[in-house]
Computed example of a mutant assay.
Amino acid sequence: MNSKNIFTLTGAFILYFLIQVLILKNLVVFGMGFCLLYVVFILLLPIELSAIPTMIIAFLMGFGLDIFYDSMGLHTASAVMLAFFRSPWLKVITPTGGYDPNTPPTLLNMGMGWFLVYSLPLILLHHLTFFFIDNMGTFLYLPMIYKILASTLFTFVIGVIVQVLFYKKRRGI
């Protein structure tokens, strides 16, 4: 990973963080769907990035969000869980010819079918972890399931919209 990639990832990290804290913190659809767009940032990290650096980046993002959300580790635990399962999931869904080097796993580079299979289960895993920890100690499982499904769909749709509007098809980050 060269210095240009590190600079780009740092800028993207800051941008996703600020958008999450300043804009999406209070955005809730129908009282159930929360947009946790920072998950998309973790998913769009370079494929070549191994699990440990991905988990460190996810930890930093989650910890920063926990400070602003006052959520006592919910974002950190969920983001690290997502980062932990990202690499094995990428190996499971590897295309026949493998991945092109330095190609980010975006919707425009990989296609809608691949991106759907890649991102939706990982977003669902993140949201399951997040809302299960948040719901710990209560018996409100049906509202929790609604929140998980609505938030997963909302985060995925906003993530796709962000990629279509602001990302371009390219090789390398």
Rank of each mutant, 00 (worst) to 15 (best):
F166A: 13
S3D: 08
N26R: 08
F154I: 09
L108A: 08
P88H: 05
Y69Q: 13
M1H: 03
A79S: 15
N135T: 11
L60F: 06
G33Q: 10
L149S: 06
G113D: 13
D134R: 09
L142N: 06
L165A: 13
M61R: 05
R170F: 03
F30G: 02
L37T: 05
K25R: 11
F7T: 15
V157D: 09
V21A: 13
P104L: 14
Y38N: 14
L37Q: 06
T138Q: 08
Q163N: 11
F7Q: 12
I6F: 04
L9V: 04
P88Q: 13
V160T: 10
L90E: 07
L120G: 01
G11Y: 00
I67L: 11
F156H: 08
L120Q: 02
V164Q: 08
F131S: 09
V80E: 00
K4I: 15
D66C: 12
S87P: 01
I47V: 11
S71G: 12
I14F: 03
V117G: 01
M32F: 09
T76Y: 00
F130N: 04
T76R: 02
N109R: 08
G111A: 07
Y118V: 08
N5L: 14
M1L: 11
M112W: 03
Q163D: 14
I52E: 12
S78I: 04
A150T: 13
L153Y: 00
L36P: 00
D100A: 15
L128S: 09
S151T: 12
C35H: 02
A77T: 15
L116E: 05
F59K: 07
I148S: 04
P105V: 00
F132K: 06
N102L: 13
G113L: 15
I123D: 02
T155E: 06
M72I: 11
R86H: 05
I123L: 11
L22Y: 04
